[in-house]
Design a protein around this nucleic acid. Sequence first.
RNA 1: CUGCCCGUAGCUCAGCUGGAUAGAGCAAUGGUUUUCUAAACCAUUGGUCGGGGGUUCGAGUCCCUCCGGGCAGGCCA
Length: 575
Amino acid sequence: MMTLFATLTAQLHHAVQQLFPQVEKNLLQAIALEAPRDATHGDLATNAAMVFAKPLGTSPRAVAEQLLAALAQQPALAKAEIAGPGFINLTLQPAAVLAELGQIRADPAAYGRLALGAGRQAMVEFVSINPTGPIHVGHGRNAVFGEAIARLLHKAGYPVHREYLVNDAGNQIRVLVLSLYARYRELFGESGEIPADGYGGEYLIEIAKQLQARDGAKWLALRDEDTLVAELREFAVNACLELIKADITTLGIAFDRYFSEHAMHTQTQRMAEAVGLLRAKGLVYEGTLPPPKGKDIANYTPVELTLFKATAFGLPEDQAIYNRRGAPTYFGQDIAYHYDKLQRGFDLLVTVIGIDQAGAFKPLAKAIEALTGRADIYHPVAYEMVKVLRHGEPVKLSKRAGNIVLLSDVLAEVGADSFRFAMLGVKPTTPLVFDLAKAVEKNMENPVFYAQYAHARLASVARQAMQLGLPLPPTQPAFGDLDPAALTPAALAVARLLLIYPALIEQAARALEPHRLATYATQLATAVHGWYAAEKWLDEAAPAATTTRLQLAAAAKAILADSLGLCGVSAPESM
RNA sequence: CUGCCCGUAGCUCAGCUGGAUAGAGCAAUGGUUUUCUAAACCAUUGGUCGGGGGUUCGAGUCCCUCCGGGCAGGCCA
């Protein structure tokens, strides 16, 4: 089942190849078929003639003339004309538009579903916060963004696996356990000392009480740090992970797997295997690194380390895989983890990271490229920081949690839908200013209400129609039962947006930019509100026109719900 | 010093792999309801797309350079 957009695109490509067999095939990708801003430019427009004019050594208009003749065969087109510097503006047959609406209604979830991921296995790794305490709003952006990418890839036809890397193997877990132990001792009236770089948030008092409830004074006499860490590591990590999972659940996110780094290291040889592979390629060697630039480090003494030859890939410096004590560095662990992903059969690896860590992923990208021989597997996607305000003023940090703005506090105040839509309302590389006061308003200051309201309106009209004895038409009504004249400019503005939905999915999925779905949902809502205000839809005296409008309204409702759904936002039947 | 991100209307931001006259919301002003949800709609006002070069049929978008802001830069996390 092809969408109208796909049909027209194929037709266009076919015409170009028939007429101009000499042009390179990859130039076809440069053809844009898009909905013009200005409705007087038709329903769809293409730049094809301008793309090929130069390679063919002729003028855009001459190319356009030939394409025009070929496109005249296309039954879905009512009109095709040359405009401006060489655009071809296409006007669709109302019958084709109406048939497409029926296709949308027949299976809304299938509309815009692609096969981009055929034969591939995608993994989206996101959140992956160190399990050392509750999470803040910035992590919330990570969670929403990652989940939206997962949904988008699924829509685009990828099998998608969602994974959270539990970083339970490093030094910070040691610090966590020792911090917890200090709180534990305090519960028994003893002096506990939280390590210098430890976790002072009061949530550890709660977790210490849980430990006390479980084990009593069992650990009180134990002072050996290594033993403490070994014995309490799992308890501490799990307790912190529970705090995190609670917020993740509130956001409506479920991971397929929480991947324990500690378990990977203790149960597999991934680290050695991956390093061995790289070494066999001549990309691992023993050597010393120059002192870090831009920083004065007193007493810097170079030591021979195991290094990855990142310079072979154009990076400024090689990267250490093991530190001077012989333990894996973060980079080394990342190599092992991603090697594990590859061994599990995934060949599209998306990792959602904060912009502050983006630099660290360059050498990793090169290591994965070295392991696979492919540069199209690993896709780190970075997002900017989140600043939280209330009425323009910075909100108070939660001292209880360690001077952060708790995600759970924000969710409790504004709700998950509002939060999610706000996080997806701007592109990930834009620093996000999130005003709690605006996020609970019920107007255009808070776009989620605007989009949801449009959906509720559509639902309301459908109910109203039912009451008037004007039920929804069958998904593919006879053309004679419809009235093309009901497709007024305001209605066509809605219809055009529906037709380009599959193209939007493709572009957003390729770019890994789910925020385009949020922008689209808002645009569609605008068109719906405009159409609604422009004319009365339900008219018992004009059944064909009413049926036509109900058909469009039902299709719009379905796509609005689908696009909101990809954002993880609900589409209410009434508000 | 180096790398990455950002700079678009008074404010917050869109702008689809370069496309036609740069768009929304908020704020300001004026309208719209005996009609299906006015949480809405319509109209008006508001722009050297940070500055300057370059690439080409065509640049907010690509390249160079400068300015300004943010974030990074151990074998740390």
